[in-house]
């Protein structure tokens, strides 16, 4: 276990609905997810929407308690949020009343960093994501891609060992998306963080990751974990034979699930009041 940075053991998450006819309805968001992530690894989780990817990330972040099972980071059990994990949420989640610099400094303020150190650190990460000319702008003055960079810089600024990213590039256009992917790889190579990257784009997952975990829906569980043995730096045209065969493999895993997903959902509706 020592070489694993993150160790998820039989993680389960249930949500309880309102009581109906005397019984509370139970929704299984995640069932028996087990996953090990190595130090410095970039692992993607792909799955259909609503398969519990984001819930899994919330559990990893310590934002939600597990219903069953456990998550260990460096052998220590996750019990709550921790500055050793940085999070980049879907939809930027920048504070609109803070400038780029102030957004990046948010985590440092909570850490009670010294003014001078804070300024140097934020400057460093703003530069790393290429926004040094925009440091004093407000989020609304930036494009989608720039906002995403700010969110990344903010998560990196307080020095986490692990970066959790929830469909971070879903809201930007295709061109920007590819640029951001390459920038992320560049930053990853420079900082050597352990990254868990959630996405619903198969191409994105293959292009970025060392391994891809495929999730199935309702209840969310991991169906398969594939190694991406494509040499880095990877070809950005994504048309090699290896790339295509991986894409096909993941696609068919997800297809099967989509066909079965309807059945499962119907079953679930039938037994709503468990």
């Amino acid at each position: 276990m020592s070489e694993n940075k993150i160790s998820i053991e039989n993680a389960c998450k249930y949500f309880y609905g309102k009581e109906r006819r005397g019984a509370a309805s139970k929704f299984v968001a995640i069932r028996n997810v087990s996953l090990d992530v190595r130090e410095g690894e970039l692992l993607s989780i792909v799955g259909p929407s609503g398969c519990g990817k984001s819930t899994l990330l919330d559990l990893l972040a310590g934002l939600e308690p597990l219903s069953d099972g456990a998550i260990y980071i460096d052998g220590g059990k996750v019990t709550g949020p921790d500055l050793r994990r940085g999070i980049v949420l879907q939809g930027y989640a920048l504070f609109p009343w803070r400038t780029v610099r102030e957004n990046v400094e948010f985590g440092l303020e909570i850490k009670d960093a010294e003014k001078k150190e804070m300024k140097e650190t934020s400057q460093h990460f703003i530069k790393l994501v290429g926004l040094e000319d925009f440091a004093d702008k407000y989020p609304h003055e930036l494009s989608g891609g720039m906002r995403q960079r700010v969110a990344l810089a903010r998560a990196l600024a307080y020095g986490p060992e692990i970066l959790l990213m929830d469909e971070p590039f879903a809201a930007v256009d295709a061109q920007t998306r590819e640029t951001l992917q390459e920038e992320l790889l560049h930053i990853w190579e420079e900082t050597r963080k352990t990254i868990i990257f959630i996405t619903h784009s198969i191409d994105e997952a293959i292009f970025l990751s060392d391994r891809v975990a495929v999730m199935t829906s309702s209840p969310g569980s991991i169906k398969s974990i594939l190694s991406v043995d494509i040499e880095r730096p990877r070809n950005s045209d994504r048309a090699t034979a290896e790339f295509s065969s991986l894409r096909r493999e993941i696609w068919s895993l997800l297809q099967n699930d989509a066909a079965r997903g309807d059945e499962i959902e119907q079953e679930y509706c039938g037994e709503k009041a468990v």
Binding site: L63, L83, L89, A93, F95, F106, G107, I110
Partner: peptide, 29 residues
């Protein structure tokens, strides 16, 4: 108040008072 912003602040270990002063208050201002 955007729950995403609160979630984001929580993920950075902000305590309740900080969340109120730095997220909830400016959001609802």
């Amino acid at each position: 108040v955007d729950p995403l912003l609160v979630k984001c602040a929580r993920s950075m270990c902000a305590d309740k008072l900080t969340i109120f002063l730095e997220v909830v208050l400016p959001s609802s201002l």
